[in-house]
Design a protein around this nucleic acid. Structure first.
Lengths: 242, 242
DNA sequence: CTTCATATTATGTATAGACATAATAACCTA
DNA sequence: TAGGTTATTATGTCTATACATAATATGAAG
């Protein structure tokens, strides 16, 4: 097995790629050859060591910094972070795609649809004017005829031209919106809530069951677009890897 | 306001950076100038349009692909993804840092510590041999004297030299581990569970309350290191933005 | 000795060209 | 006409150099 702490691959003819360099640097960080808070050699010095160029070394170190291992500042140099600020990346798929990826078939059912003045709590969350109108849509998503997710969504009608003409009987609001509204900013909040009576009925749960809940707020060019609460069937877990 | 759909900034003397190019391309995607599934002009053509080089255009498009907007393949070109596969990035801070960031003061208390054979469910999860030993540590994390998080952790003793000598009375196992064990691979699962009697007592909750739960499994160079369940005080939400 | 100005250094990013390679298009042969 | 081969193209990445700029070190002056 190649000694990854060495600078060069065993075959001297094979140049070190930016990925090779990342791996060597990461190995040195993890083995404490370069301990937390220590200053790395300059890019210029590393380029010499790896028989590479500053641009290639820069890319390797920049990506390690983006991944939370290093801190870089001009002139100050590159430092190993004391506690890596690791970041998990969560893919946010369409619920249809998520169900299909589970190997199940997807089904959608509209539960309710009404146009109304934005409730106070929503106007407050979004900073909406008092008379703002929203479309409130509730729907169910099924996986192989079993409940998977209950969706409770409010759409700001001024932000989505044509939304009042959409009846959402055949297609869910999220898929409809994705076709029409590119969304720039999303805020997600994961939490646990308690199943109320209606929730329990739709999700085949018992009232009081703990429900994994995702709140999703979206904006387009600074204007609020939607607020959705997604309630998952009991037992659901959202998994990601770093 | 500068018309961002134009290729060049108004001031012809200011060259377009890779960030400018990203923004123009993103604007064209969001405004459907380049609709979903469409093929973008080649990097060479875009470099000409932006009076730039392939390397600069490549960086802009590569980052947009990493952010989930584009799909790129050699020779096949660059396409706009039908549904952006957006990814949220979750910073995974130390619980101490999370509490301090909230403006509260942090306190740690060891609840229990015992060495034992790995329970069957854990051996199964990690693929451990039947006689594997683990250190089971339970502890509480407080924010301003209020319960914040209950931590239930199993540490594979073979993977962590010195762990049996650690009593964890003054410092939590996670901080202790971070000082000694760089962790390469992490799997996180977010879910909702129900507060049992002990949990309710520690977290100042009622039995049966929904509890936002994070399971964290870690490996180093392929070997299992820890399995932790983090239970959060009722009302806790984990927020991230895309 | 302290403060301010200047020099130096290390990273951030751009350019131009080169080579590698995956994927598609075009061409040739049976 | 279909299948196989070859050419072409578009992206992936590297090199070498240059310029920008943030941050630190050094030196000069009061």
């Amino acid at each position: 097995m190649t000694d990854l702490l060495s600078a060069a691959p065993e075959d001297p003819r094979e140049p070190m790629s930016f990925r090779d360099i990342k791996q060597v640097v990461l190995d040195r960080i993890e083995s404490r050859v370069w301990p937390p808070d220590s200053l790395l050699p300059s890019e210029k010095d590393l380029a010499e060591e790896f028989s590479s160029t500053r641009t290639t070394v820069n890319r390797a170190l920049r990506e390690l910094a983006e991944e939370g291992y290093l801190e870089r500042r001009r002139k100050a140099g590159t430092r190993v972070l004391n506690a890596p600020v690791r970041q998990a990346r969560l893919a946010i798929p369409l619920v249809r795609d998520e169900v299909v990826a589970m190997g199940a078939s997807y089904r959608y059912v509209l539960v309710g649809r009404e146009e109304l003045a934005a409730p106070g709590w929503l106007a407050a969350r979004f900073g909406l004017p008092p008379q703002a109108r929203v479309l409130h849509v509730r729907c169910m998503h099924f996986a192989d005829a079993r409940p998977f997710q209950f969706e409770d969504r409010w759409i700001v009608t001024d932000s989505v031209p044509g939304v009042l003409e959409a009846d959402f009987s055949a297609i869910g609001p999220n898929e409809w919106l994705l076709q029409r509204v590119p969304v720039s900013n999303v805020e997600l909040t994961f939490s646990a809530s308690r199943a109320g009576a209606e929730m329990a009925e739709f999700l085949d749960a018992a009232p009081g069951d703990p429900i994994f809940t995702v709140e999703r707020m979206t904006w387009l060019r600074g204007a609020p677009v939607t607020f959705a609460r997604l309630y998952h069937v009991p037992g659901y877990g959202l998994t990601t890897r770093i």
